[in-house]
Amino acid sequence: MNKKLKIILPAVVIVGFLSVAVWYLRRTTIPILEPKGPVGLQERNLLLFALALSLFVIIPVFSLLFFIAWKYRESNESARYSPDFDHSRIIETIWWLIPSAMIGVLSVVAWNSSHSLDPYKALNSKTPQMTIQVVALDWKWLFIYPQQHIASVNLVQFPKDTPIDFQITSDSVMNSFWIPQLGGQIYSMPGMSGQLHLMASQYGSFNGLSANISGAGFSGMTFVARSSSEKDFVAWAHHASRSQNKLSLAAYNNLDRPSQNNPVAYYSSPKDNLYGTILAKYDGPGTSMSGMYTGGKTSMSGMGMQ
């Protein structure tokens, strides 16, 4: 293979491969880059900002690497050779300063965004927020609507532009509650109530999943998050409230049994404070430091039950 071909051939392969990749990605949804709610949008913008900032490191490193490697290759005898050149206060100071400056900027961003995008913080909106209680079970998601007195499995519907206060626990192992197109995720843990505030700013059905390995049915533990109009939501809730299946404690215990790839199901009139009852199951003797729900705040020592 001659030298020209050795350069051209890989170049053609790379360009061809990249074109196919770009063509495919353009017609595929990339949820985290195409968020449908304000939280996801801010998180996406933060990601892009940090990525842009990182170019200040990537560009010098890559240009220096390839320039130095090429210029000081063994066969280039015209290049200067200083075998004992081993320190320079100025150059080293610059090395410590460039990444420090970048990290300094990013630290401020990290601090501010951690606070403004704190999943426990309620979202700013004129519309009053709606509470949905989420329970991770083996291997499905139960959504309890305390205000609407309904419950559903593997489908959560809510009106667009209404801030949702997801209260999250588990009646099994640890899972992670994640709707990539809306943003964020929070662990669901037995005996503890986590919180995630999200809002959809567009209509649509979004994929939801568990992002923490939870056993045999883990891969099938997906759900649909549907953002609809207020009117559709009311109709949907009404439909669910007329379900023959009442979520009594017995019905819940039945649902709690391990099962995989569950279809969507609706329940009417869940038992009063079912969510609290589920949390209390793990409130055995000697419980402490369990970070339980104490009305909006987590407490590392509290025993509070909502």
């Binding site: 985290i32 996801g40 801010q42 998180e43 996406r44 933060l46 990601l47 940090a50 990525l51 990182s54 490191v57 990537i58 490193v61 890559f62 990290i103 990013l106 961003v109 990290a110 965004s113 951690s114 403004s116 995008l117 999943p119 992670s176 990539p180 943003g183 964020g184 995720q185 929070i186 992002a211 923490n212």
Partner: peptide, 22 residues
Amino acid sequence: TMGGIAGVLLGVPAIDFQLHNS
């Protein structure tokens, strides 16, 4: 270098919420 940049992104908690365990 590229992996390190990805690591710095993951180090920002608000970004990590979207990328954790992915």
